[in-house]
Design a binder for these strands. Structure first.
Length: 529
RNA sequence: GGGGCGGUAGCUCAGCCGGUCAGAGCAGGGGACUCAUAAUCCCUCGGUCGCGGGUUCGAGUCCCGCCCGCCCUACCA
């Protein structure tokens, strides 16, 4: 198969596999729900990178809007200072804690974003997609802000903050002709079933659009922390319209056409299901209106439930990722959430299940297998790996494992992909026990059998290091070193998923060294917060 | 009210177009082994597949009704 170096035969940059997370609102404190989406994107992109593809992984922060303005005021800072503070003290540390290898980090207050956003608005305006209109909605005088019909207290349409009746107020706004896109959106959903995933999310979106769309007001004039509407500086762009564009502005739209051509359209927008509608309805309509290509897939992941409830800041169930990574490490964190939960469905997090999977699967099954092998090669063969030898029982299973894992991971079915890999881990543990190399070692006449068993086990671990590297890069790097694989095979990052199932890659004489255990057993107890 | 998804062994969940689909892992019980992180391996206990009808030679698997849970129902990041 063709190796990719990022350039196709014509010399033009190969279009990258482009994955995005939502940009996170800096006013929120990062919790495991944010990190879940980010980890999924990171593992997905690392997997494709391990397949030899050119990849681009984008994340970032959303920094405009009235809430930011008010939070900054409350903290005695300018909005920009407040955003800078939150990005540096909360959001970037979260990425470091989960070991995310994003290629870019976009902030909506950056000039590379705000300039192109204005350009985009002009394009919509010039194309007749925007008109001036009147927004009428429930308004609380005490709050000095519009309320959402759904949040009003009943009976009487009362403000949930002040418990007093709201009044209907009108504001002159600019509107986007979203309603004009109903049929085109429905046609797109119909012709591109992979556009919204999983199916449950797609169903909801289709039903929603079928029920009819209203035009969307895309500007605000009651505060000024946002991108100015280019033809009317008394308005700022509605924060969602601003935020969605990060996916193209970060890719170079409006600033770097060559870069944009090499990235857009995005292959996957990962989103939480709470913001699905913005990504599966408004965003594609905006792109259609501007004449741009649509992303291939919008994938909505489920929510993490804690104690059976959705995490909530107000209920103090929003768990910071660092609380878990401090105890279990980033590799285990990444593994746990993708292995335990079915991506796309809601799932429960509990400290107990995290500890259980850590101990059972990472420490006892995977880590211990590495210990068994390295210890025996040191003990029986002075740390020098025996020569390659066939072992059909394992080689056949490994080949199937690689094909299945690759298929599942590319489909974003991380749970099944990891299950396939760990089925193989179990198989190898069984193989070692059945082969009983410690018995073979006592009989010089069976030296060849011992060599074969040691080689087969090492070769299996070699493949596991490749397959698990996108999920657990730190541990797999140590395993790679421990196997002495780099001398003959090169860096772990250079190993291709497609070749991982080939038997006989590790070379005779590789220096195998027992290292610190990959996943030390840990106390199960949850540390006090 | 309308809509979406789900309700399968103690726990977490697989089960595509109906016919070894009654499963996996963990937990529990028993045994083997000692290379290894008191790890590993094997065996085993265990479920009227939410409830009630229906279609069919045959239904967790399709249809209808009901019960329960979560979510969506437009400008909340």
């Amino acid at each position: 198969m063709a190796e990719s170096d990022g350039v196709d035969s014509a010399g033009a940059p190969e279009k990258a596999f482009y994955v995005t997370t939502p940009i996170y609102y800096v006013n929120d404190a990062p919790h495991i729900g944010h990190a879940y989406t980010t980890v999924a994107g990171d593992v997905l992109t690392r997997w494709h990178r391990q397949r030899g593809e050119r990849v681009h992984f984008l994340t970032g922060t959303d920094e405009h809007g009235e809430k930011i303005l008010r939070a900054a005021e409350a903290n005695g800072m300018t909005p920009q200072q407040w955003c800078d503070h939150m990005v540096e003290s909360a959001w970037k540390p979260m990425l470091a804690a989960i070991d995310a290898a994003n290629d870019d980090f976009i902030r909506t207050t950056e000039l590379r974003h705000t300039g192109p956003v204005q350009q985009f608005l002009r394009v919509l305006h010039d194309r007749g997609e925007v008109y001036e209109g009147t927004y009428t909605g429930p308004y609380c005088v005490a709050c000095e802000e519009f309320k959402l019909p759904g949040e009003l207290l009943q009976p009487g349409d009362r403000c949930p903050v002040h418990d007093r009746p709201v009044e209907q107020l009108s504001e002159e706004n600019y509107f986007f002709r979203l309603s004009a896109y109903q049929d085109r959106l429905l046609a797109h959903y119909r012709d591109h079933p992979q556009f919204v995933q999983p199916d449950s999310a797609r169903n909801e979106v289709v039903r929603f659009v079928e029920s009819g769309l209203q035009d969307l007001s895309l500007s605000r004039s009651t505060f000024d922390w946002g991108v100015s509407v280019p033809w009317d500086s008394s308005h700022v762009v509605y924060v969602w319209i601003d935020a969605l564009q990060n996916y193209i502005t970060a890719a170079g739209w409006g600033s770097d056409p060559q870069r944009f051509a090499g990235l857009w359209p995005a292959d996957v927008h990962l989103v939480g299901k709470d913001i699905l509608r913005f990504h599966a309805v408004i965003w594609p309509a905006m792109l259609m209106a501007a004449g741009l290509a649509l992303p291939t897939t919008v994938f909505a992941n489920g929510w993490l439930l804690v104690g059976g409830e959705k995490m909530s800041k107000t209920k103090l169930t929003g768990i910071p990722p660092q609380r878990i990574t401090d105890h279990f490490g980033s590799d285990a964190y990444r593994y746990y959430f993708l292995r335990e939960l079915s991506f796309g469905q809601d799932g429960s997090f509990s400290w107990e299940s995290m500890a259980q999977r850590y101990t059972s699967e990472l420490a006892n099954d995977f880590g211990n297998l590495a210990s068994r092998l390295t210890s025996m090669v040191e003990r029986y063969r002075d740390g020098s790996l025996p020569a390659p030898a066939p072992e059909p029982a394992l080689a056949g299973a490994l080949e199937k494992t690689v094909l299945l894992a690759d298929d599942r991971m590319c489909a974003m079915d991380f749970q099944a992909g990891l299950a396939a890999v760990f089925d193989y881990v179990r198989l190898v543990n069984g193989y070692v026990t059945d082969s009983a190399p410690w018995v073979l070692a006592k009989d010089p006449a069976r030296a060849a059998d011992l060599d074969r068993v040691l080689y087969a086990t090492a070769e299996s671990l070699r493949a596991l290091a490749v397959l698990l590297n996108p999920v657990m890069p730190k541990s797999c790097a140590r395993l790679w070193t421990s196997l002495g694989a780099e001398a003959a095979l090169g860096p772990l990052a250079a190993q291709r998923v497609q070749d991982a199932g080939r038997w006989g890659l590790l070379q005779a004489g590789s220096q195998v060294r027992k290292s610190e255990v990959l996943f030390p057993r840990l106390p199960d107890d949850e540390p006090a917060p």
